[in-house]
Amino acid sequence: MTKRKVALVIGAGSVKCAAAIGLARVLARERVDIDLIVGCSAGSIFAALMAMGGTSDEVAAIAARLWTRELTSTRDTRAMLSIVLPKLLGFGEHFGMRSDRRVRAALADAFGDTRIEALPTRLLITATDFRTGEQAVFERGRVVDAIRASIAIPFVFTPAEVDGRLCIDGFLSDPLPVGPAVRDGADVIIAMGFESNYQERIDTPGRFAFQLSSIVTNNLLRSRYAFHSVAHHGEVIAIVPEFRERIGLFDTARIPYIIEEGERATEAMLPHLMRMIDSPATHAGEA
């Protein structure tokens, strides 16, 4: 029997992406080998840490140190003023209201000069080409550069230049990038995605912008998932953890709870998942 090629896709979802640690724990316990990991936005951080071969505890510890509110704590005052005085101060495509100095330092601390192509597990990181809107997929180069591009949150961080492409957050092209795993020939694609929270109240321009972002992201998540489900010859298994508690963008204190929900969601799918992984590589159900 031909071994089925298994891919894990970790979608955009800020700190909620830590649920992928719970998923990885269950898969490790069941001795499921992952052949490919795809990561998008904050999911790219967890994807890279897993592709490096870190244990779930190590991944959780590094992520908690890395993904903190301090990443966005340094304002770029000139950039903020450029919103109201664009002609005077200049306004362009490299706009971002927060300095990325801290995020670059945190990524360098976690990944150093590690290259994507040198990792023990194949890794793909997605971002979005700011000029064309197309999905950018990084399969080689420095991990830190690809992640920096993938987490270039609009308005917060400047788009990042990688390999001559100006890139912004991966969620803008696909919050759950199953496509690169399909192209890479995966038979079984375990896709962990996250729905964006809607705002409980809208009393600031920031919350207004986040609400718009959530509406677009959730609709994009559904439409892209629908497309991949009907277009792909193999199996796409969506795992979307449901959080009883509201999770903030940088709620790292909740990582243990988030991991639990990831484990719970994976356990619920496990019998189906194992059957698909263990079954011969037939492609029944093609429409």
Partner: peptide, 12 residues
């Protein structure tokens, strides 16, 4: 039961 790649064609 469960509909997946090994059973979907039977349903179809």
């Amino acid at each position: 039961g469960s509909v997946d790649g090994s059973t979907a064609m039977q349903l179809q």
